[in-house]
Amino acid sequence: MELLISLLAGAVGGNAAAKVVGKIDQGVLINSISGIVGGGLGGTILSALGAGGLAGGGMDIAGIIGQLASGGVGGGVVLAIVSVLRNALGK
């Protein structure tokens, strides 16, 4: 369940980052896919760094908020990386 929350938060985070920073908008499909990948990575990395209480700490409110935050931020970061790579390859 924790992974699902991170993946969904990543999709939302990727699309939200695209709306806030218009230069990284790659379209809804790529924004969502990048966000899902980033959400999964964000939750996994945060757990690996020892912040398991924040991302993957169970279904209590603090764990859910941590999963949403790490997934959303991870989604935005991966979308920014994908945008930079696509722009570099397109030139």
Rank of each mutant, 00 (worst) to 15 (best):
D25L: 02
G10L: 03
I65L: 11
A18H: 04
I65H: 01
Q67S: 11
A18I: 06
V28Q: 07
Q26I: 13
I30D: 03
A16G: 13
A80S: 12
D25I: 00
I36Q: 03
G53T: 01
V21M: 15
G74M: 07
N87I: 07
A62F: 05
A88P: 05
G22F: 04
L46K: 08
D60G: 13
L54A: 15
I5S: 08
L79S: 06
G38S: 09
G40A: 09
I45G: 10
I61Y: 00
G10Y: 00
G42A: 10
G66N: 06
I64F: 00
L46G: 10
A88W: 05
G58N: 01
V82Q: 06
L49R: 11
G50V: 05
N87C: 06
L8F: 13
V12A: 15
L68R: 01
D25A: 04
G76I: 05
L41T: 15
L85S: 14
K91L: 13
E2G: 15
G57K: 05
L49N: 07
K19Q: 14
A17S: 14
A69E: 01
G10R: 04
G66I: 02
G10C: 06
L29C: 12
V28L: 14
V73L: 14
A62H: 04
Q26R: 15
K91S: 13
K19N: 09
L7K: 05
G43A: 08
S83M: 02
N87W: 05
G76D: 02
I5N: 05
I36S: 09
I81P: 03
G66A: 13
I81M: 11
G14H: 02
K23R: 15
S32C: 13
Q67H: 05
S47N: 12
V77W: 00
I5K: 04
I81C: 09
L54P: 00
T44K: 11
M59I: 08
G22I: 06
A16C: 12
L89R: 09
I81E: 05
V73G: 10
V21Y: 13
L68A: 10
M1L: 15
A51M: 14
L49S: 13
I64D: 01
K19T: 09
R86W: 04
A18M: 08
L49T: 09
G71C: 06
A80F: 03
L7S: 08
A69D: 03
G90K: 13
G90M: 09
L49M: 10
